[in-house]
Simulated assay, not measured.
Amino acid sequence: MVEEVRFDGPFEMTDVMKDQYERDGFLVVKNFFDQEEIDNLWKIFEGPAGILNHSYETIEPGGKKILRVMYKHPGNDVSGVISRSEKVVEACEKLLGGEIYHYHGKFILKNPHEAGEHVWHQDYGYWYKHNLFPDMITVWVSMDKATRENSCLQLLKGSHKCGRIDHSPGGATLQTTADLDRIEALKPLCPLVYAEMERGDVIFLHCNTLHKSSPNESDKRRWAFIACYNKASNDSFIPHHHANYVPIDKVPDSAIKECRNYTDFSGKEFTDPLKKAEDRKHFPSAEIKG
């Protein structure tokens, strides 16, 4: 069972929450973003100038599809303001123990019936080739209600304590898969939990926590907004398709509701691992997970 933190009013990451994150490898916070904040985020998908112009689609085994948007820097649209908001940045700095920077952001858009699975993996399984330490974190924001039926995240509780495990290419898919024999050995020790979430709920996810999501075979959409951060002291030692250290221009939480930029995505530097063949060399596994 997932232990959840609930709050009303201004959020502060407490020592108790940090202890839970360090014990379990993740922390679920209910209502981290209220409905007005999530409604404002949705507006960047509206109209012909929306962020979907920068999306790419992959075909997964079995013919299922996954739609994604990925970029380096937060920018000044609503998604960027969320990524630079005090409550997000300060929570991550508390969990990682120091200054952070925006490593990359993405939307994982699982549509009804057609969306494929994300295989078992650790985020650091993708990132370790360019970053020396697992001082990295993912903030996973539920834009829709996420359930077992429409592909909520599945996590192995406490699996971050086993360290990074080997990952291998996934064959027909561009994803990489964590060592499945090792995962099976871990399951009796690290309980499998389903992170069922409402709109605006957030998971703070340790980069070594094993997780996956099943195909979305339901009639319900499951879209998620994801912001990934690296500790400033862990700046990538090999330049690649994600960002090197740039100080975060932090904004007050009130800016999320006040932002009216829904179409100017300048500065985000969108990345598409399928767009150019010459780009593939910068994507060790195309980084199309989530």
Rank of each mutant, 00 (worst) to 15 (best):
M1V: 15
V2Q: 07
E4R: 12
V5M: 15
D8L: 13
P10H: 13
D15G: 10
M17G: 11
D19W: 15
Q20G: 00
Y21P: 14
E22R: 08
E22V: 07
D24I: 03
D24P: 08
G25V: 04
L27H: 05
N31S: 13
N31D: 12
Q35W: 12
E37W: 10
N40V: 11
L41Y: 12
W42I: 05
W42E: 12
F45R: 06
F45V: 01
E46L: 14
L52P: 10
N53P: 14
S55A: 10
Y56I: 00
Y56L: 08
E57I: 06
E60G: 03
P61W: 04
G62W: 00
I66F: 11
R68A: 03
R68P: 09
V69A: 05
Y71P: 00
Y71G: 01
K72V: 01
K72S: 02
P74L: 00
N76R: 09
V78P: 03
G80W: 04
V81D: 06
I82K: 04
S83Q: 03
S83Y: 06
S85E: 09
E86N: 15
K87P: 12
A91G: 05
E93A: 06
K94G: 07
Y103E: 02
G105A: 04
I108M: 03
K110N: 02
N111V: 06
P112S: 13
G116V: 02
E117C: 02
H118Y: 03
W120L: 07
G125S: 09
G125P: 08
Y126M: 00
H130R: 10
H130N: 00
L132C: 02
D135N: 01
T138F: 03
T138K: 04
T138E: 06
W140N: 08
M143N: 11
K145E: 10
A146Q: 07
E149K: 15
N150W: 11
S151A: 09
S151T: 07
C152Y: 08
L155V: 10
L156I: 05
I165K: 01
D166S: 00
S168E: 01
D179H: 05
L180V: 01
R182W: 08
I183N: 02
L186M: 15
K187L: 13
V193D: 06
V193G: 08
Y194G: 04
Y194T: 02
A195P: 13
A195W: 09
E196I: 08
R199Y: 07
G200Y: 05
D201P: 14
F204T: 10
F204G: 12
C207F: 05
C207Q: 15
N208Q: 08
K212L: 07
K212T: 10
S214P: 09
E217P: 06
D219E: 13
K220M: 09
R221Q: 11
R222E: 04
A227G: 10
Y229S: 11
S233G: 11
N234S: 13
D235W: 03
D235P: 11
S236K: 15
S236D: 12
I238L: 11
P239W: 05
P239D: 14
V246P: 05
P247V: 09
I248W: 10
P252V: 05
D253Y: 09
S254N: 14
S254P: 14
S254K: 15
A255F: 11
I256Q: 14
C259H: 12
C259W: 03
R260K: 15
Y262V: 03
T263E: 10
G267E: 06
T271H: 05
K276G: 07
K276R: 07
E278G: 06
E278F: 14
H282K: 08
A286E: 02
I288P: 01
G290C: 04
